[in-house]
Write a protein that binds this DNA or RNA. Structure first.
Lengths: 106, 106
DNA sequence: CAGTATCCTTTAGGATACTG
DNA sequence: CAGTATCCTAAAGGATACTG
């Protein structure tokens, strides 16, 4: 459980993965960046490398005339859709009941 | 979705919440610590305060002869059980497919 | 276009000592 | 027993400049 949560920990993990799960098609680096503002190049690169290492996402360089790189969820990545969707539904149902902590104390 | 994940982000959030969800009974501070090693007093206090602020857990001081404090999941906290269980089941099913990243790069 | 490299600030979290 | 307070280190993450 903790391991599963670690996959989607980090500020940008869910937004990035979610966009890759919402489409059948691969997305280009720049396109992901456009859909997940305001993520920086550094953080997007880091997150994609991490997903790739973990096997949730596959990287596909396209050495065409206008060279670019596409990213796509693997079957393992796609198997995570249900868990994310449960979290999404829980949030929709309970968002109003959750109190926002003044400071995430320290 | 991101909001839901933030509730259970942090190193000790899931272990602490899970133990409170697995029992009907309130748990004492020291009992939680015993079940979630090796959490420090500081981190357990911080996490419980955070859950309390968010409305997932309720704090019940018992001013008895041997004074102590009990913690219990609220109905809102208990409503999170399903989401955590999905993550648990996903992990059980896919733990072997996930590659451990060498370094959680930076 | 899709990255690296570097510098910097903020936050998380551990260790330890102390207290009503 | 159930905390605070303090100090410290490590990790996360932002900003910016550079590159094959």
């Amino acid at each position: 459980m903790v391991m599963a949560i670690n996959l989607i920990a980090g500020k940008w993990a869910i937004p990035v993965l979610w966009h890759l799960l919402l489409t059948e098609d691969p997305l280009r680096f720049t396109e992901i960046r456009r859909r997940v503002p305001p993520i920086t190049q550094k953080e997007l690169t880091k997150q994609l490398r991490l997903f790739e290492e973990q096997g949730l996402v596959i990287r596909k360089p396209r050495p065409t005339v206008s060279p670019h790189v596409e990213y796509e969820a693997t079957p393992l990545g796609r198997s995570f859709y249900g868990a994310l969707d449960i979290l999404r539904l829980w949030m929709i149902e309970h968002v109003d009941e959750v109190q926002q902590p003044k400071i995430r104390n320290s």
